[in-house]
Amino acid sequence: MMLAARTRAEIEHTRRRYPHPRSAIMPSLWAVQHELGWLPPEAMAEVAELLGLAPSEVQAVATFYSMYFKRPPGRHHILVCVNAACALRGADETAAHIEQRLGCPSGTTTADGMFTWESTIECLGGCGGAPMMQVDHHFEEHLTPERIDAILARVAAQPADHRDWPPARVPNPPASTTPPPPTAEGPPSAGAAG
């Protein structure tokens, strides 16, 4: 048994919310990830045991979804959308800026273990605030190099206790319907051009 009593209790609790315990796999995996930061096989086996399933069934589910980590990530996780709508407004430049700032390529963790970042082709539903990213699951929209730097500095100062992860929300300055700040230059125009 590697899971904290609290996590086990949470799994027991979610299990009762559904007509079939199998439905509790995903919420349970979230509970595990919030405790440990990722999903080690032993934890999957423990979830399976708590739900009365074969461990392979839990693994099959855990590996299907992109948000469950099969390896331990850094303290904070950054996801940059580079799908079409964001790309039109400069997502590649955003990604390049982050890569340069963090000094490590997409899909990796900074040497100090502070950030894991990746650019994703999965549209994150922030097209109205493009370019955008998610930091520890929070939307950060209308990104500019300056805003990115500010966000990175702010987040680095926050603790990353996965148990209470993600940390309290700091509201985005612009609401999703508000137009982007009128900048003379703005992000490079032919955003989608490679």
């Binding site: 096989p41 999957m44 086996a45 074969a54 461990p55 392979s56 693994q59 099959a60 590996t63 299907f64």
Partner: peptide
């Protein structure tokens, strides 16, 4: 089955 899309493969637990 584990993983998805073109990375899908058949596997045993761990």
């Amino acid at each position: 089955l584990q993983e998805r899309g073109v990375h899908t493969s058949v596997a045993t637990f761990d």
